[in-house]
Amino acid sequence: MTEQEIRAVLAVAMAYDNRKPGEATVAAWAEAAHRGRWAFTDAVEAVHAHFAESTAWLMPGHVTQRLRAMRSGPAAMAELLALPAGQPTAPERVRSIVDAVAGRMGWVRAVADPAALGVLDQACPHCHAGPGRPCTREIARGRRRGELVALAAPHPSRSRDLAAAHTSTGPEWTP
């Protein structure tokens, strides 16, 4: 969540209990939101639900507990019916359902598909996998010792070099 969203959640709480949040409060709630993986609309709903059922002073832990309870429960029928129609196993349908669930859970996609980024277009400086080939590692134990196995994701040095070449903003770049 952004700082503005944290301030908006605190404003909702302030409407109920007349709290006077300062910069330290915003920073503390932002840290709790990050650790609890809050989504803005769900966090606002959790604040409203807390004050509808409790007279206790609202703390970030209360919001996190309510969000976990909301996420662990079954999805509302309206949400299930709103899922896109189509072939049940079509890649586009699966992707849209995964994205919908990820949004509901407040998840953020960390790394995009390496092939889509062009990461595999260059040789890996770590394992020396050639262009177009996946990164590999050597098995160190067991009867398969010494065999090379493909990694699910490329080595960070392979994607870092590509990211540096495609951006001027540095570490803020997201695939």
Rank of each mutant, 00 (worst) to 15 (best):
V47K: 12
L120I: 09
P84I: 00
G146Q: 06
R93P: 05
R137S: 13
S54C: 09
T89R: 07
E53N: 14
Q87H: 07
P154C: 02
A82N: 05
R137F: 13
A52T: 10
H155W: 08
A49W: 11
L162Q: 13
A90E: 12
V98Y: 04
I97M: 03
D99Y: 00
R141P: 06
R143D: 14
D42V: 01
L83E: 10
H128D: 13
G118E: 13
D113M: 04
E138W: 03
I97Y: 01
P60N: 07
Q87G: 11
H155C: 15
C124Q: 08
V101C: 04
A56Y: 05
A116V: 13
G142L: 09
P88S: 01
G146S: 07
P131Y: 05
V108A: 07
L81M: 04
S96I: 00
G118R: 07
R137W: 13
A150W: 08
E147K: 11
G106H: 08
R104L: 06
E45W: 04
S159A: 13
A46Y: 10
C127A: 09
A69S: 09
G86C: 02
V111N: 14
T64V: 06
P125H: 03
F51Q: 08
Q122N: 07
R68K: 10
E45S: 14
R143K: 15
D121L: 12
L80S: 00
A69Y: 00
P84H: 01
V149N: 07
R137M: 12
G73D: 09
A153P: 00
A110S: 13
A150P: 14
C127D: 14
T55A: 14
L120T: 11
R71T: 01
A90Q: 09
L117W: 03
M70D: 03
V111E: 15
G86R: 01
L81Y: 03
T55L: 11
G142P: 15
A78L: 02
P125W: 05
L117R: 14
G142W: 11
V94Q: 07
E92Q: 04
R66W: 05
V149G: 07
T55P: 13
A153W: 12
A69N: 05
R109Q: 14
A85R: 12
L83P: 00
R104A: 07
A102S: 15
G132T: 10
P131F: 06
E79A: 00
L81S: 02
A56R: 11
P134T: 09
R93N: 06
L151E: 15
D121W: 02
D161W: 00
W57H: 10
E92A: 07
M59E: 15
E138F: 00
E138P: 05
R143G: 08
H62I: 00
R68E: 10
G61N: 10
L58P: 12
D121V: 06
M70Y: 03
R145Q: 15
A78S: 08
R133A: 14
A115L: 09
R137A: 13
A115C: 03
G103D: 12
L151V: 05
V98S: 04
R71H: 11
Q65F: 01
V63M: 05
A112C: 09
T64P: 05
P74L: 00
E79M: 01
V149Y: 04
H48I: 12
R145T: 09
T64S: 15
L83F: 05
A69E: 10
E79I: 00
H128Y: 10
V119A: 15
W107V: 01
R109T: 05
R160H: 12
A49D: 15
R109N: 09
G86Q: 04
